[in-house]
Amino acid sequence: MSIGIAVISLGLLALIFGLILGYAAIRFKVKADPIVEQIDAILPQTQCGQCGYPGCKPYANAIANGDAINKCPPGGEAVIVKLADLMGVEPTKLEGEEKPKAVAFVHEDECIGCTKCIQACPVDAILGATRQMHTVIADECTGCELCVAPCPTDCIEMIPIDETTKTWQWDLQSISIKEVQ
């Protein structure tokens, strides 16, 4: 008898709490970005394929499905840290090496207008037409280097982005002091 009361009362309690929880789950549902979108937002969008996937979005998908977070050299350590934070895993060492930021440059005298680089460019940052000299829109170039290999005349060079007084990062240690007089 007393067991019956206990069971019933516990059952009722469970039911009530269950209802409350269920309601809360619906009422207070947090609308979060799908994880892939969040990962994609962290990735640098160079679309370089150095991670082994044909772009940043596929890699974001792969990460969401459990791939390693350390395959993005253009993003470097910073991206790994952010991804680790988002995915709740330990940051790991970068696979590959971080290179200074660079943009592609077409040596125009050597360009034969083959358009191969145009097809390779993941962000359509190369301008040109068949048998016309091509050029890179530096502002749109992500520095992915995908256009370098296809060039039959090796006329594309990755030129590191120069630091100017406008982009300088206040790193006093890096300034070399010249002796004068």
């Binding site: 206040w170 006093l172 300034i175 002091i177 002796e179 004068v180 007089q181």
Partner: peptide
């Protein structure tokens, strides 16, 4: 003359 760098 060698110049020293510092931050304000």
């Amino acid at each position: 003359m060698k110049l020293n760098l510092a931050s304000s």
